[in-house]
Amino acid sequence: MFNIHCPYCEEYRSEEEFHPSGEAHIERPKDPANCTEEEWGNYLFFRKNPRGIHHELWHHSIGCRKFFNITRNTQTYEILETYKSGEKPTITASTVSKKTGVK
């Protein structure tokens, strides 16, 4: 069970207080009406789903109720960082693979 640092509460809390909400940084198309079916379908359903570094959206649902982002290794389950909505990750697959060879 994960130990998650909420960037808003600024403390570690147990996973039970949180709920994952899938891949982070999926932006809604600015002009849905002019999206092709393929573009719209990709936005709705197609995901990176990596084995390794994954940026994902979590909700501190039994806590401060804020959505925030986690960079997590989906193989080891190690959480590398958490950051607020609207912020960018400092750790990405490319920065990590340079250091450890983990993809």
């Binding site: 709920h19 932006e27 959206l57 649902s61 959505f67 909505s85």
Partner: peptide, 11 residues
């Protein structure tokens, strides 16, 4: 409630 908050906070 979650739905509203998610759209508001993330989009």
């Amino acid at each position: 409630f979650n739905w509203l908050e998610e759209w508001h906070q993330t989009e």
